[in-house]
Nucleic acid binder design. Structure first.
Lengths: 157, 157
DNA sequence: CTTGAAACTTCCAACTA
DNA sequence: TAGTTGGAAGTTTCAAG
């Protein structure tokens, strides 16, 4: 990046705070809240996108309504840590639609997957036929979410 | 809910698919893609919101740009499982801005937290001064994310 | 589900401090 | 450089068919 590093001023911060919770707010509503002109808000948001602060705007769905009732965390241990093995595993799991997130971890296992399925049977199918059959896997331990008591996409700013 | 259960037709499904990846698309662009009128798209989206499929629309930020470089998973074991203890823990961690998510789990520990901080020092501070001091905690084990190889908010539909 | 039109929003150019 | 204004272009919203 050849860009001047520009710290975010309070207006930028407030815009990010608000858009993280509700990106469907209009520029006019923002301009009223922040006491700036609409054009200023427009320009600030354009900058925040161009500078890479805002990656995208997405709709958050109710997963239970679309039949993703079970969330599992799968802790995976591999039998070696060559670049090929790591890359092979990452690429393979990234292709599975059940896998929402994949993290390489420090500590006593190598990866954690967050897996969303309709129910335990579907998880079992994923586990047996998609995850456990991948090469170089030593162990997989599965943990299931009983309830989600906080679920936030917005970082405090 | 006293609502008729209405299965989503292919147009609704396609709208949800698209909005999960890019909610800033205009109704006109959607109407061109899906070969429906703008008013139809408008009405479909209104319904999907009213029926609770779409919970909200949010901006996704680059966490590294806003100084959340470290993601930790904290596995917590409590010394008892009375309603008071569980509720007390959930309420307490929900208030901490470092805690993005809190899950009650099946298995050998009670909760998993996903914690976002600027660095290891900030995590240590959170761990020592906010998490470990809560009542009824038996153990906390922390695991740190080395790299995020898949990160998806959109469920396949 | 569509059309059509009013109301509203976005976006840009010209300009100011 | 950051901000404003005004207006053209584009989008949303809704009543009627």
């Amino acid at each position: 990046m050849n860009e001047t590093i520009r710290d975010l001023d309070p207006t930028d911060q407030e815009i990010l705070r608000i858009l993280q919770h509700d990106a469907s707010i209009t520029h006019k509503q923002l301009s009223d809240k922040l006491h700036k002109s609409i054009a200023t808000i427009h320009e600030r948001i354009r900058k925040l996108k161009n500078l890479g602060y805002i990656l995208k705007t997405v709709a958050i769905l109710d997963r239970k309504k679309i039949n993703r009732n079970l969330i599992a965390f799968s802790q995976v241990l591999l039998n070696d840590h060559t670049a090929e093995t790591l890359k092979g595993f990452e690429d393979a799991v990234a292709k599975y639609p059940e896998v929402m997130e994949c993290f390489q971890m420090t500590g006593s296992f190598d990866f954690v997957l967050r897996v969303a399925t309709s129910d335990m049977e579907a998880y079992h199918d994923f586990y047996r036929n998609k995850l456990a059959i991948l090469p170089n896997i030593t162990t997989v331990q599965s943990f299931f979410v009983l309830s989600e008591t906080k679920s936030e996409t917005a970082y405090p700013i």
